[in-house]
């Protein structure tokens, strides 16, 4: 499987912003730590990472933990992460649990905290501003 890298775009003189859209199928075979590495390697290269199916709560918790251990002054100040907020109507966690399903799959956007800024967010729309480094 080819690695997701940003080597080509990172060196471009007019430095655009690379966006990686990672399918659920691609994430499926990975362990939690592999998923977190994939995300953080991308984000630390200045990319915006979009996950088709998001992470489980446990993986989100580990993502926060690993992000914290990697923050360093003037180099990496952490991540911005966005999913649609759950409303009462869309909250199916009880049903999901009854049905033995994993957490509802949800589109997730992750980027460097200093480059990704959420402008607006509701149950059906995430609007964000991406800036260059």
């Amino acid at each position: 499987m080819p690695e997701v890298t940003s080597d080509e775009s990172a060196d471009e003189p007019d430095g655009g912003v690379q966006i990686d859209l990672i399918s659920g199928a691609r994430m499926e075979g990975l362990t939690s730590m592999e998923k977190i590495r994939l995300i953080l390697d991308g984000v630390r290269d200045g990319n915006i990472v979009i996950l088709e199916e998001g992470l489980s709560p446990d993986e989100e918790s580990k993502l926060i933990e690993v992000t914290m251990t990697e923050i360093s002054p003037d180099d990496f100040s952490g991540i911005e992460i966005e999913t649609y907020p759950q409303s009462q109507a869309t909250d199916q966690s009880l049903l999901d649990r009854l049905m033995g399903r994993e957490s509802a799959k949800k589109l997730t956007v992750i980027g460097p905290a200093n480059q990704l800024e959420t402008l607006h967010k509701d149950e059906t729309l995430i609007s964000a501003l991406v800036s260059r480094k």
């Binding site: 709560p57 989100e60 999913t83 966690s93």
Partner: peptide, 15 residues
């Protein structure tokens, strides 16, 4: 309605 609150409550519920 912040992302941190949404994620943390989700993490707590999942446990």
């Amino acid at each position: 309605f912040t992302q941190v609150n949404t994620m943390l409550i989700g993490i707590i519920e999942s446990q």
